[in-house]
Amino acid sequence: MKKLNELKLSQKAKINKILTSGDMRRRFIDIGLIENTVVECVGISPQGDPKAYLIRGAVIAIRNEDSKEILIQEI
């Protein structure tokens, strides 16, 4: 299954599963990343990490090492 960090610029996907645990997991849920949420990659920083995602109307930057813990489903 694909991971969130593999999403290319302007690509969209559905969240499938969050593998992280603890605080970061809670943070992800708080910003609205739950199953079936549609996200879009809208920005990549000059060095390729972090990337910015459009999540429920807000743009949020997440580091690749964290976003690779989120499994996605292409749509």
């Binding site: 992280t20 943070r27 743009v59 930057a61 090492e65």
Partner: peptide, 9 residues
Amino acid sequence: SSYTLEMPP
């Protein structure tokens, strides 16, 4: 540590 950063309009 891990973090998220909001990028406002």
